[in-house]
Design a protein around this nucleic acid. Structure first.
Lengths: 129, 129, 129, 129
DNA sequence: GTGGTCTAGACCACT
DNA sequence: GTGGTCTAGACCACG
């Protein structure tokens, strides 16, 4: 488990933790059953407060990504998809609209966007195999 | 100018305003020189606090999307791209990574994502012409 | 909004708050759109810490019962049932098994239990009308 | 004695043990005088910490359900009901209120609940005969 | 004024 | 040692 927080990142620390854990799960570096660092350990190594880590873990639990056990370390949850796929698709669409709008207003062209998107989707497909 | 705020949207009101203005600019419904409603008018019609509208307008000004004039209504700015394209591309990549990670963890496949993305990019290209 | 915490209750304070809010929603004393006391107000009136109240509100939000708005008070959410009814039924069965087992081991007979249960269900049906 | 612990169950391990012992007593699978596995045996077979098993046994003893003997295995106690029946009834009512409130908020109707409850009480009555 | 985030330090229950 | 709960006090962003 290697996590880091970026002081210059404007997003709150707990969100950075959440996103990094999600990322590692997506990349397959963390698999169901794997243990996460204890709240205190991670807080120490990141030089942040225990409660900040705990807050991040709690959110991850509520999203079904990890399991918290009293007296034991948190573990990656078995993957289950509580959301209906159509809801997930609708959510994706809304978020993409916003991202693309910002990109266009920053001067990128549709083909710029298309190129960047395709590159990322290629990478995802590689990981899927 | 038709704006609306969605109570059930988890995002703060000021962001909803910003995003809707951006969206209308992107769609060409608002063009450089067009007037926005006055702070007081918009606050009244949306039933929200004046400070909230003012805050949203200030952020839009900071992003170079609108111009504020003393005693006159705000207007859409002539389009300029203060960010370097490289920065815009880098920003886009980071945001896409997050959006795609979430989509994958919610059970969507790479091809699901690809399909949705392509549909949106098609629409953008139509508008661009 | 009248809430109270019971020092002698072994359950944590935040759970007592959650259960009382749920109860008031169920009884119809709180309806969608109604405002809850602010975190600080409730903390003051209950003589407990702000964060304890906030924790309770957060859980209620995650369960979809209330909505939190930045800078505004929390409100009761419009009722929506994210769980499939079959899941809700399965959960109810498990919880009932435990409750009934304890009651039996404490010396109550099946007819004792039946009597108590029926009385409560009668009351619920009255409220439903 | 067949016990198992469920990793995905959110309840602490010691409670799962307690509930399963209670359940087996209620179903008549364990009768007064029957021996329970030794603390060490159970800890080994469930792959959990000895202290956890010991804690569970201690709680069961406190509730009067089992008897602990120095150097010998624990045994199921002769059934006695230390609580007054009134207290047991009052406790049952409180717990049912909470369970029913949750069920209602999850979208179940009074008749759904009634149906599920009745089915369970029928089963209990069968066992009682 | 209101919620959002973070820090600090404490005590308890569970493993 | 580990998570669960609670308190206390602070600063920031939003309305």
């Amino acid at each position: 488990m290697w996590l880091s927080i970026n002081e210059r990142d404007s997003r709150p620390i707990y969100l950075q933790i959440i996103n990094q854990v999600k990322d590692q799960v997506r990349r397959g570096l963390l698999k169901p059953g794997d243990e996460l660092p204890s709240v205190r350990e991670l807080a120490d190594s990141l030089q942040i407060n225990m409660h900040t880590v705990r807050g991040a873990y709690l959110k991850l639990k509520d999203q079904g990504l990890i399991e918290l056990h009293l007296g034991r370390r948190a573990t990656i949850a078995g993957s289950r998809f509580p959301l209906k796929l159509e809801d997930a698709e609708a959510g994706l669409q809304l978020r993409l609209e916003e991202v693309f709008t910002d990109a266009l207003l920053e001067g990128l062209s549709a083909s710029d966007i298309s190129r960047i998107v395709d590159r990322q989707i290629e990478q995802i497909k590689k990981t899927e195999r």
